[in-house]
């Protein structure tokens, strides 16, 4: 079985101050660390677990700049056999569906049995690429998957719904499965794995090399367009407690005591 995992390089903004750049459509990247998209890391783990259970080969695909090679190298170090990066210089402004078109073009040329994606990208937060990719390929999909049991022809998955419920369903292959975070424990790359990854194939492709219909990608090929990014006005009624740590803690202790908490 051939398994592919789609990986996205994203800025780690969880605890960072995110600023809009001069174009109004991007963010200031200078002081941000970049990493593998969190849900994609879980998707990669799911693929590697499957490889260990069955006779399967795992490959990686990313649409991104040269720097995305770091993310792919890490995936190779964890156990994937090869990686491809589709350069996104000519694909700027692609929305979720356009990105799915790029990946669909690649998989039409390089068929696999199963594609894993993360269920959400932590930067754009669209949750679109997996299901859209499946539809473009004429395959079924399933999303928010936290558990996957793989049979010879079909798979049983558990999807996470809101409010503490799981939906159990089965799905035929080939398919695209979007993985939710928390269902497995992503491994770390071993020293040996990192060494081995240096000699594994990591290929960079231009969009032309995958027979992409460029009228369907980039900003011109997208049916939605980013107008602007901005910092939302925080309408906060919060009383901000100032002072040094001891003063802040003192004031907070008083508030808690007032509320009968101590």
């Amino acid at each position: 079985m051939k398994i592919a995992v789609c990986l996205r390089r994203v800025p780690d903004t969880a605890e960072a101050d995110v600023k809009v750049d001069g174009t109004g459509k991007g963010i200031v990247e200078d002081r941000l660390a970049f990493t593998i998209n969190e849900a994609d890391n879980y998707a990669l783990e799911e693929a590697l677990l499957l490889k260990e259970q069955r006779d399967a080969e795992v490959s990686l695909v990313s649409v991104g700049p040269k720097e995305a090679d770091e993310v792919l190298r890490m995936g190779l170090a964890k156990g994937a056999a090869g990686a491809v990066r589709i350069d996104d210089k000519e694909l700027q402004g692609s929305d979720g569906l356009a990105l799915a078109e790029v990946l669909a073009a690649y998989f039409r040329k390089n068929p696999v049995d199963l594609v894993f994606t993360g269920c959400i990208a932590q930067d754009v937060e669209d949750s679109q690429v997996g299901p859209a990719l499946a539809q473009l390929l004429g395959w079924p999909h399933t999303s928010y998957v936290v558990k996957l049991d793989c049979g010879d022809e079909r798979m049983t998955v558990r999807r996470e719904l809101e409010g503490g419920f799981l939906e159990v369903k089965d799905i035929a292959r080939p398919a695209v499965v979007s993985i939710q975070t928390g269902g497995n424990t992503p491994r770390y790359a071993s020293i040996l794995g990192i060494k081995r990854a240096r000699t594994k194939p990591l290929e960079a492709l231009e969009p032309g090399a995958i027979d992409l219909d460029t009228s369907k990608a980039g900003e011109a090929g997208s049916r939605t367009r980013l107008e602007r990014l901005y910092v939302p006005e925080v309408v906060s009624a919060a009383e901000m407690i100032e002072g040094d740590v001891s003063e802040k803690a003192g004031r907070l202790a008083d508030i808690l005591k007032e509320k009968g908490v101590s």
Partner: peptide, 16 residues
């Protein structure tokens, strides 16, 4: 819509 964990908003235009 919100992006980057709600730290920014994005305005997107749908042409269809």
């Amino acid at each position: 819509r919100g992006v980057y964990g709600g730290k920014l908003n994005a305005e997107r235009f749908i042409s269809t």
